[in-house]
Amino acid sequence: MCLGLPMTIIETDGMSALCQYGDEQRRVSVMLLSEPPLGAKVLVHIDTAVRLLDDDEARLIADALEGLDAALNGHDCDRFFADLIGQEPQLPEYLR
Rank of each mutant, 00 (worst) to 15 (best):
T12M: 14
T12S: 15
D13N: 14
D13S: 10
G14N: 00
G14K: 05
M15N: 11
M15K: 12
M15Y: 03
M15P: 00
S16R: 03
S16K: 10
S16Y: 09
A17C: 04
A17I: 03
L18P: 02
L18Q: 15
C19N: 02
C19F: 01
C19T: 13
C19L: 03
C19E: 05
Q20H: 00
Q20Y: 02
Q20G: 04
Y21A: 13
Y21K: 07
Y21R: 03
Y21M: 12
G22N: 06
G22Y: 09
D23I: 11
D23H: 11
R26H: 09
R26L: 15
R26A: 14
R27V: 15
V28D: 01
S29L: 04
S29W: 05
V30C: 00
L32A: 13
L32K: 08
L33A: 06
S34E: 12
S34F: 05
E35S: 12
E35D: 11
P36I: 05
P36D: 08
P36M: 10
P36T: 03
P36E: 07
P37S: 05
P37T: 02
L38M: 15
L38P: 06
L38K: 15
L38N: 12
L38I: 15
G39L: 02
G39Q: 00
G39T: 00
A40L: 11
A40G: 05
A40H: 06
K41F: 08
V42Y: 02
V42I: 03
L43K: 02
L43M: 05
L43S: 00
V44H: 09
V44Y: 04
H45Y: 13
H45A: 14
I46N: 14
I46E: 13
I46V: 13
T48K: 12
T48Q: 15
T48C: 10
A49C: 01
A49D: 02
V50D: 04
V50C: 00
R51G: 07
R51Q: 14
R51K: 14
L52Y: 11
L52E: 15
L53H: 02
L53Q: 01
D54F: 07
D54R: 05
D54G: 10
D55G: 04
D56T: 10
D56A: 12
A58S: 01
R59E: 13
I61F: 08
A62V: 02
A62R: 04
A62N: 07
D63K: 08
D63Q: 12
D63P: 03
A64V: 03
E66C: 07
E66S: 06
G67K: 04
L68P: 01
L68V: 02
D69E: 15
D69G: 09
A70Y: 04
A70S: 13
A70T: 09
A70C: 10
A71I: 08
A71S: 15
N73H: 14
N73L: 07
N73C: 12
N73T: 12
G74R: 01
G74A: 01
G74C: 06
G74W: 07
H75R: 02
H75Q: 12
H75L: 11
H75T: 05
C77K: 01
D78S: 01
D78N: 09
R79W: 06
R79A: 14
R79Q: 15
F80T: 11
F81A: 14
F81W: 14
F81Q: 14
A82D: 11
D83A: 12
I85N: 09
I85T: 06
